[in-house]
Design a binder for these strands. Structure first.
Lengths: 198, 198, 198, 198
DNA sequence: CATGAATGAGGCTTCATTCAT
DNA sequence: AATGAATGAAGCCTCATTCAT
């Protein structure tokens, strides 16, 4: 199956057997849902036998967790980078929006969608380490929004405001087409306008 | 199981056997996911045997579709009501936002979440009639946003703008607590501010 | 498969579906070992589909436990009966030996063999209730042997003596043929002689 | 894993790779059962990779057979030694009992238990050579018992009598603790008393 | 309409064995 | 000899659906 070749290489998902499994898993879990994807399908796309999957991961569940972990680790790194680069608070906000939109619609789109849609498929214990990273991730946003609020560019509760922006950006997964009518840069601009009340 | 008593009665989900199944299904499909919910669990909450479910619905799939249909029919009606009541475009927008937030966080919250999260679990053929209703639903929004754009209150592509607002409102399902720190009215106000660029 | 018809009906293993499963399980688990017996084989002998087994027992393990439980419950009852009937200590000893030999070589032979051979296949928690019954069972023996010791017919530590007798009787499972050269009555006599040092 | 160091070196099981595998196998097959022991576990205790086991033995089955063979060869030798040393029939009987108890509870205990418990796990063809040795082994016993019968110390069918004694000695595997309340010498005395009807 | 035992396809996982390195 | 990734058959178990009562 050559489909695997077209699946994006992201973050920690290199071309090792493990990485190939994760790429395929992100794709299938997003496309069909975790529960509706069989380990045999997954193995077939990777080009191995289903039993071989279990040399790399102990259970199907572990594969799901690994996908989510890769997604969040990679994107947290992107978020930090955006913060470092921006000179002003507004620039940093734009950087965060841009990075988040890219996470959601770029190479990590499958993994990010899995992270959101299949969140309830993993146990509380498995959620915990991911929640810790998410906490860090969200703190970056809140800090920037607080700065902007003090500068008079944001007028509402920053937690609520962030959640609304977050909904707007994550929602793009449901409709935005990377090669469609509007570029990711334009989408970033519009979202930034909404976030800054323009 | 007395849990069923606490599940909200909405729209077409009356206290008939069929309505009771749909209420329980909306709850379970949201809480656990469609695939992870067994018909036995569902039957148990309804208080019947699993075999009896199939006197009311031909397949488990049909139950899912019915839940989605109830959700969308009811909410389309709410949306139309909001439009009729509003005197100005801004009022109509607020009405739509308020109605959408209520759909997502009120009595129909389970069914709405199922509609979003389990969309891919139903076949293309089953999606079609729901898509038609959604089309109508979205047209209401676009008309209002077009009016606001002509009045100079919206400055961007209305389709994109609506999708961002939609993300923001639907995203509330993931964090908003009906009896929490902020009321639905306040949430409506803040969302409206974001939609109008304030 | 008509084999099932030839398997003995014992104690609680009536002709209900559950009883039929237990009879077949005792037979197969003894003949082939628990681990080497598949649920499909078992189902085939019972005359049902493998999935149907799990309406009667939650796991394959539970079937094993149930077989063991039936064996021990039934045989404890037999042992008590033997005690009640015997007038003298020597008669009671003979009754116990006879009952034990019948347990091991009669209708419950499969279940008894499973109890001994597959003991380690069940968890500590599953062993516990069975151990309690075994305790009661062994106390019956020790009481009789103590009586005999006081009467001067047994000259050694009764616990050790019982264990040696137990080995001798349980060991018959490996060689005694119910319809062979020597009857169960004769075997009882010889074993009694050994137990009384004659 | 240093556990291997504590496992007894017996008969042909020297410290060669082959011997190390057999020692570990006897231990694990006894402790967990043959079917429940994986080659991976076995390899881990030996300190090699599972694939490497198959340089020493063609199949897992072969390992089981080799364990059994070592046990029976070694113990046959012990039995012969006991016969040679004993001056009278009673002394020879005591020697046999002592040797058998040592086989069952001493260094070869694991292998002996495997021989008994896993007998049905090997094929008829694999049993055959072992049965021949067992035949020889049992003949030693029967000869001694015949002598004792002619001397008036045994009053029953010697085959049956031997089987009962065999049950008593092999049964010790289930309860006797080498460092417990009673020594192997004392156990030998009591068993001899039972065998001689005292 | 309701029941609930039975179905049987299909899911995840295990594991002895192989083989290129 | 040793490795360890890969195999693939086979195992246990689940569950939507059916149907005789």
């Amino acid at each position: 199956m050559q489909l695997l070749e077209h699946l994006p290489l992201i973050g920690g998902m290199d071309d090792s057997p493990r990485g190939r499994v994760l790429r395929a898993a992100a794709y299938l879990f997003h496309e069909q849902g975790y529960a509706r994807t069989t380990v045999r399908e997954l193995a077939q796309i990777v080009g191995i036998q289903s039993g071989s999957l279990f040399h790399h991961f102990k259970t199907k569940d572990d594969i799901l967790c690994a996908v989510m972990e890769e997604a969040i680790i990679y994107n947290l790194a992107q978020m930090k980078l955006a913060i470092e680069v921006g000179q002003t608070a507004a620039e940093r906000l734009k950087g965060l929006i841009r990075a988040e939109l890219e996470s959601i619609n770029g190479n990590t789109s499958n993994a990010m969608a899995v992270l959101v849609y299949e969140w309830n498929a993993i146990s509380r214990a498995q959620q915990e380490p991911l929640l810790a990273m998410r906490q860090e991730y969200e703190t970056l946003w809140l800090n920037v929004l607080e700065d902007l609020k003090q500068q008079g560019h944001v007028h509402h509760d920053t937690f609520i405001w962030r959640r609304l922006i977050s909904g707007a950006t994550f929602g793009t997964a449901l409709w935005y087409k990377p090669n469609g009518r509007i570029s990711l840069e334009e989408l970033t601009e519009i979202t930034l306008a909404m976030a800054l009340g323009q």
